[in-house]
Each structure stands twice: as C-alpha cells, then as structure tokens.
Design a protein around this nucleic acid. Structure first.
Length: 152
DNA sequence: GCCAACGTTGGC
DNA sequence: GCCAACGTTGGC
C-alpha cells in the first residue's frame, strides 16, 4: 500500500464536499507528472492525504482511500467545463482520474508547520515553487504528519 | 491582488 | 531542439 497527497482548492472541492459525497472522482488533473502517477502507481487501497491549497487554512485536512484505479476523465471532453482539453482524442484520452472515498477529517496540519519540520523537508510541498497536485508520501512522512495532528 | 516559479507552446 | 513568450499555480 502506498501513500499520496492530493491537492485541492476548497472553494472548488473541499474535504467537506468529499465527506458529503463519500466517494468522488478526482477529476481535472491536467499535469503530466501527476497524471503519470495516477495512471501507473495509484492503486486501490492506497491512503491519501487531502490538502487544501489557495485558501485561508492551507495544509493537510483529512484522509481518503483509493477505491478505483485510473480511468478516462470524461471532463476533458466537455467543451463548457473548466477541465476541457480540445486536444485530447476521445479514442486515446489524454487525462485520467481515480475515485477516492472519504475516511476522516484531521485537525489541520498547516503548510507552515510542514515547512518548519525537518523530518518533512524532503516533501515536495516543503520545497519552494512546487506545483505538483498529486505527490507521493513516504510512510515516515505519513506517520509524522499524523503525529502532528495530535490526534494519534 | 501580487508575483515568483514553473510548465507549455510555438517560431525558428 | 532551443528558448522566449505566455499562461497557470499557489503562497502570501
């Protein structure tokens, strides 16, 4: 089983929305590096930190589980949608998505604290200018962040 | 809203 | 294949 971190803007899709929906597709990833990880490495049963970006309380806010592996993201073919990609060929879809299931909220572990923790220095998140929306998390990093919530 | 960092595009 | 221009991301 692997660990991941998925970024989302809560104004668009938050951990609360995920909780309401219980299971949701993770659509709209339009970055090749992130896509390749979803397509090749994200497996059913993997654990996912949900991370809120571009908002007041930036940081890790909860946990989800992968319940369906990569399949074509149909939003790439919807011309009126935000995730439309006119260059994607329906016979060879460029973008994929996975489904995740809500597990639980966590007490916020802010980006500030993540950056301040030397044990997390290797996380892409802690590095300046990082823009990956999906990134791997090591078991050590996973456990460290859980510890930082003070809930475990 | 600003702006640095980064990815993508397209002319050559 | 280089690289400047451009668009997007995302913290602040």
């Amino acid at each position: 089983m692997a660990y991941w971190l998925f970024k989302t803007e809560p104004d668009t899709f938050s951990i609360d929305t995920l909780k309401q929906q219980k299971v949701s597709c993770w659509e709209g990833v339009r970055n090749y590096q992130a896509r390749n990880m979803m397509r090749d490495e994200v497996k059913v049963g993997d654990q996912v930190f949900i991370y809120h970006s571009s908002c007041k309380d930036v940081g890790v806010v909860g946990i989800a589980t992968v319940v369906r592996e990569a399949y074509p993201d149909h939003f790439q073919f919807e011309p009126d949608g935000l995730s439309f990609d006119p260059k994607s060929d329906p016979d060879n879809p460029r973008w994929v998505m996975v489904d995740i299931e809500y597990q639980r909220h966590l007490r916020l572990v802010s980006l500030k604290r993540i950056k301040a923790n030397p044990a997390l220095a290797e996380m892409p998140l802690a590095k300046r200018g990082n823009r990956l929306s999906i990134m791997p998390v090591t078991e050590t990093q996973w456990n460290e962040i859980l510890q930082m919530t003070g809930q475990f």
